[in-house]
Design a protein around this nucleic acid. Structure first.
Lengths: 190, 190
DNA sequence: GTTAGTTCTTAACCTATATTAAGAAAATCG
DNA sequence: CGATTTTCTTAATATAGGTTAAGAACTAAC
């Protein structure tokens, strides 16, 4: 199963046989059944997770007890609380599985140490982070400038797979509206 | 003036004398008077800018002609259209100066080439990008979970300098409300 | 220092989206 | 399979924040 990560890395920068071995030793495989947590608010994020199967999500719970989804992570995505993972401070995010999932976990410690041994991996993560930032910026702009209906349409275009596998209320939460309002939008002709 | 960038880099990973020389050759200093552009929507973002003095901003103009601020860049910040800069696709953002400013510009080309010569700089940008993503995530969560008034208070706490130097309408745009509504919020007791 | 352009404030009115509630449909689990 | 929980829909009502407009307060430019 680790091969899935290796080929993801190879898609960005080619690893030698030795380097592949090192990577294999650093990550640990883990099953995450639906509704089980990978990380909880209040803790420091020690790990980043690469999704082999299934789908995870990160979200906060606000003062009124409502959940707000920051990220979905289907197959081949990394997920963590970036803020806590990078600054090693207490986290506000929860990360759990929306479907029965299988992940690889990598600790921040290992990650930083590996950057010195395999600079290619620093490049790999630099590129992933750049892409994530670019997407995040896009999402912010959509938020600032588009009404909910258009944000929903864009979500459907961008993540057609998720539309069919995830409950609508999760998607409503991601685009920043209530499930009731999303249901209403969907009910409207065209 | 380039020294300002050098010490910013040194704050994250120490450069040798030789490396400093290389950096100095790669960037170009540029004056940007208030209201002048560093980058325009429709073009591909060739450059990222490091602000030496003054303050820049990136923003989109929506279908109704309204501006929405994605980022402010006061002294010692980098600014670019990350999406366009990374993917080398046509940009939707404008970047201009809110105050008379002085910047250093670095092309994507140079940046990528320098990563091979000075891996330390790949690390520098990897770390900056991680931090930017962590902040961006935070902003998204605030957006999803907090009312405008609280977002404004957090902005004041986070960027006390900007509150005094920038017009309120720019700040309203950044936190995602109209200037009229911000004025109303500020008028309310406590 | 006058003029012209911005920015800020206030207030009346409007709208997108939230809230509440209750039933229908679907998914999960024993 | 039936029972229970979760999700989805619909509709009535409520509200945060937008729109419009007009005057006041700044700022910049000559």
């Amino acid at each position: 199963m680790v091969d899935k990560l290796i080929s993801h890395i190879n898609g960005i920068c080619l690893l030698t046989g030795d380097e592949i071995e090192i990577v294999k030793e650093l990550v640990r495989e883990k099953d995450v059944p639906r509704k089980h947590f990978v990380h909880r608010a209040g803790e420091i994020a020690q790990y980043s997770a690469f999704v082999l199967e299934g789908c995870l999500r990160s979200y906060i719970i606000d003062q009124n007890g409502f959940e707000h989804v920051l990220q979905f992570a289907p197959e081949n995505w990394w997920i963590s609380d970036m803020y806590s993972f990078v600054k090693q401070t207490s986290s506000e995010l929860n990360i759990d599985a929306l479907l029965d999932s299988k992940v690889l976990i990598l600790s921040r410690d290992c990650q930083l140490r590996i950057f010195d041994r395999i600079p290619k991996l620093e490049r790999y993560f630099r590129i992933l982070t750049e892409n994530a930032l670019a997407s995040s910026n896009h999402r912010t702009l959509d938020y600032l400038s588009l009404p909910a209906k258009v944000r929903y349409q864009k979500f459907c275009d961008l993540y057609p797979t998720l539309i069919n596998t995830l409950p609508q209320k999760q998607i409503a939460s991601f685009i920043g509206i209530t499930p009731e309002f999303l249901s209403k939008l969907r009910g409207e002709r065209n």
